[in-house]
């Protein structure tokens, strides 16, 4: 059984490393230490013999830790997307929306090709479903336990058959604030250094509120300054400043324009690219989600990286493939 030096690490309970480092985590106690500290009674032969079958574990109960995520980045083209923002700014709603969109059909020219975190995607969305019995749709709050963990989606381009593994890192609002306050805390966000895309989500409802907007804008600005200063992000990173809850921004669009203009001036040259989005993943005013925009955002994640040249594949329509599994039409 694994154990950790850190008191609040859940690795002994569920095998998840608090810092998402998996078996490489320096805080893990060696086996010898474990046996010295945990006197676990051996199972009796009778108990073992009564087990009817040999059960083997299957993956996917929780988000991927860093070691698991690395396996996917080694499979082939892979993109890491880090989402950050103030508490309840709408990051999780965006991830849940993507999951729902794929359940309804292809998204922006990409087919769903698999996911090793399906239970967690479903859990994220549970409190927005009728089946949950919830009267007001809401979102599961992210846990800082998963700050260095990843949701996984594999997609295949309908145009050229290219498969891409997406690893989506949801940094909690609490951690976002800590990272602004402390370089040490920011440095713990090890996924940022590998992120192809940094999506900073700004709460549109907060922008519309006079008493909240300045704080949210400042925190966003300071976070970007922090990750640039630390070198975790930079020209290798595509920056997305995403205003969420568009349905609650109405009448205050000028605030959004001003923030976007200032952000471009201040950070445009420091990142590989800078993009602005305004979305409503789960509007409450009777309107429907801005799925077309969310689809374009998703496509920009899959189709862009500043970390390495994107391979240019011949565009051969699926209908022209000589064999089902040959993307080159051979």
């Amino acid at each position: 059984m694994l154990r950790c030096k850190l008191d609040n690490c859940p690795v002994a309970k569920d095998g998840r490393c608090l810092e998402g480092r998996g078996a490489d985590c320096p805080n893990l106690l060696p086996e010898a230490d474990v046996s010295a500290t945990v006197a676990e009674a051996p199972k009796s032969a009778e108990v073992r013999n009564s087990l009817p079958t040999v059960l083997e574990p299957l993956p996917g109960r929780a988000p991927l830790d860093v070691a698991e995520a690395r396996m996917f980045t080694q499979r082939g083209p892979s993109i890491v997307v880090a989402l950050a923002g103030m508490p309840e700014c709408g990051k999780t709603s965006l991830l849940a929306r993507l999951h729902q969109m794929f359940q309804a059909g292809s998204v922006a020219g990409f087919d769903f090709a698999g996911s090793h975190t399906l239970p967690y995607f479903e859990e994220l969305n549970w409190l927005a479903t009728i089946e949950s019995g919830v009267q007001q749709p809401t979102m599961k709050r992210s846990s800082s336990q998963f700050d260095n963990s990843f949701l996984h989606i594999a997609v295949q381009s309908i145009d050229n058959g290219t498969r891409t593994e997406l690893l989506l890192n949801d940094i909690t609002g609490e951690t976002f604030e800590k990272a602004v306050a402390s370089q040490v805390e920011c440095d713990k966000l090890i996924s940022l250094a590998r992120a192809d895309h940094l999506v900073v989500v700004v709460d549109g409802a907060a922008l519309a509120e006079l008493l909240l907007r300045h704080h949210h804008i400042e925190q966003t600005r300071d976070f970007l300054q922090r990750v640039l200063q630390s070198g975790q992000c930079g020209p290798q990173t595509a920056l997305h400043i995403l205003i969420s809850k568009l349905d609650k921004l109405h009448g205050q669009e000028a605030v959004a324009v001003k923030m976007e203009t200032e952000s471009r001036a201040r950070f445009g040259a420091a990142f590989g690219s800078i993009n602005f989005w305004r979305i409503a993943a789960r509007p409450m005013d009777g309107s429907l989600p801005t799925e077309e925009r969310i689809g374009r955002l998703f496509a920009s994640w899959v189709g862009t990286t500043h970390r390495y040249p994107m391979p240019i594949l011949p565009v051969v329509p699926r209908s022209a493939w000589a064999r089902d599994f040959c993307r080159y039409g051979i």
Binding site: Q100, A104, E123, A128, S132, V134, Q135, Q136, G286, P289
Partner: peptide, 26 residues
Amino acid sequence: PRNDERLGILAMEASKQGGTPRPWDI
């Protein structure tokens, strides 16, 4: 095939009411 979401009008109507949601069950 999939769980229904409270979206659009359903989200609006629902927000006027109260209730206790069922905990997540995989």
